[in-house]
Simulated assay, not measured.
Amino acid sequence: MINGTPQVVTIAGSDSGGGAGIQADLKTFQARKAFGMSIIVALTAQNTYGVQDSMAIPSSFIEEQFDSLAADFAIGAAKTGMLADAERVETVVKKLKQADFGPLVVDPVMVAKGGHHLLQSDAVKTINQELLPLAAIVTPNLPEAEVIIGQRIVTDQEMIEAAKTLQAFGTQNVVVKGGHSQNKDAADFVLLASGESFWMSAPRVETANTHGTGDTFSACIAAELAKGTELKEAIIIGKKFIQAAISQPIFVGHGHGPTNHWAQMTDTIVIKKRS
């Protein structure tokens, strides 16, 4: 049967070290049994030490990748990652409006683990005004959310308020990830379009192998959406998947190693309604 298999696309940057970006997304899609494809927006020279260099793909070629996939595949969901700069964001927004790629997961990638900027500062406004309104869900970590809303986020209540602000930008659903917080557990706040909200928490794992966690989490959600999984369940599966990928380590490289994309999911997370 033509196009009978769930299909999902990542629109992001390539990580030559294989731990994040397009490579992490494709590994996650495969692990979640969705056929993955890619639209490459930027290239990086990267390893577990960090990003040594990056180069944006010409916008005309990004458009050709969109057109090529749209002409052949039945894509059920899409996700964005590294988008480099305002020009590339505008190109992606234009093509997403033309293509029928299903619900969009926006992972607003800005800075690599080693500190290399993966998004130019002038692109943040473009993401806020043009990309977020297209998103079914946005999944920033705390530093990314702070840049987007222009405010510091420290407390649980500030995470809740940040989610509301992000939703006001036009995104239907929001996950503000708490991995960068000082809390004992890694707790993420989820705000859905329906108004329902809850916390997802899991034991914090002491490890340096966290390269690509944001990419992997958002890719898992996208893969589940492509399979027809209801959004709330897709988010919870994403949390379980990334917790397993962090807590069942592999050992690659000398720096911030990658997560384990073939880890076995467990029920080690706690779902708690907003108090």
Rank of each mutant, 00 (worst) to 15 (best):
A45R: 11
A45D: 05
Q46I: 10
Q46E: 12
Y49R: 05
Y49G: 04
Y49Q: 07
G50H: 06
G50D: 08
V51Y: 11
V51L: 07
D53E: 03
S54C: 12
S54A: 13
M55Y: 14
A56C: 05
P58T: 11
P58L: 03
P58W: 13
P58I: 10
S59P: 00
S59F: 00
F61K: 03
E63D: 11
D67M: 03
D67N: 13
A74V: 01
I75N: 06
G76M: 12
G76F: 04
A77K: 12
K79P: 02
M82F: 02
M82T: 02
M82A: 01
L83G: 00
D85L: 01
A86M: 04
R88V: 14
V89F: 07
E90A: 10
T91E: 08
T91S: 07
T91R: 04
V92W: 06
V92M: 04
V92S: 07
V92A: 02
V93S: 06
K94C: 01
L96P: 03
Q98P: 00
A99V: 02
G102N: 06
G102D: 06
L104E: 06
V106L: 00
P108Q: 07
P108M: 03
P108I: 09
V109K: 13
V109N: 05
A112W: 14
H116F: 10
L119R: 07
Q120S: 15
S121M: 08
D122S: 05
D122R: 01
A123Q: 02
T126S: 09
I127D: 11
I127C: 12
N128G: 00
N128M: 08
Q129E: 13
E130R: 10
E130N: 07
L132T: 01
A135H: 15
A136T: 15
P140M: 08
N141T: 01
N141E: 06
N141K: 11
L142Q: 12
P143R: 15
P143G: 10
V147K: 15
I149R: 06
I149W: 13
I149M: 05
G150I: 15
G150E: 15
V154A: 09
T155F: 00
T155A: 00
M159H: 07
I160N: 02
I160G: 01
A162Y: 09
T165P: 00
T165S: 10
T165W: 03
L166I: 12
L166R: 13
L166N: 10
G170A: 07
V175S: 05
V176R: 09
G178R: 11
G178W: 04
H180T: 06
H180F: 03
H180N: 12
S181I: 04
S181H: 07
S181M: 03
Q182W: 09
Q182P: 00
N183C: 00
K184Q: 12
A186T: 15
A187S: 14
A187T: 15
A187M: 09
D188C: 10
F189R: 01
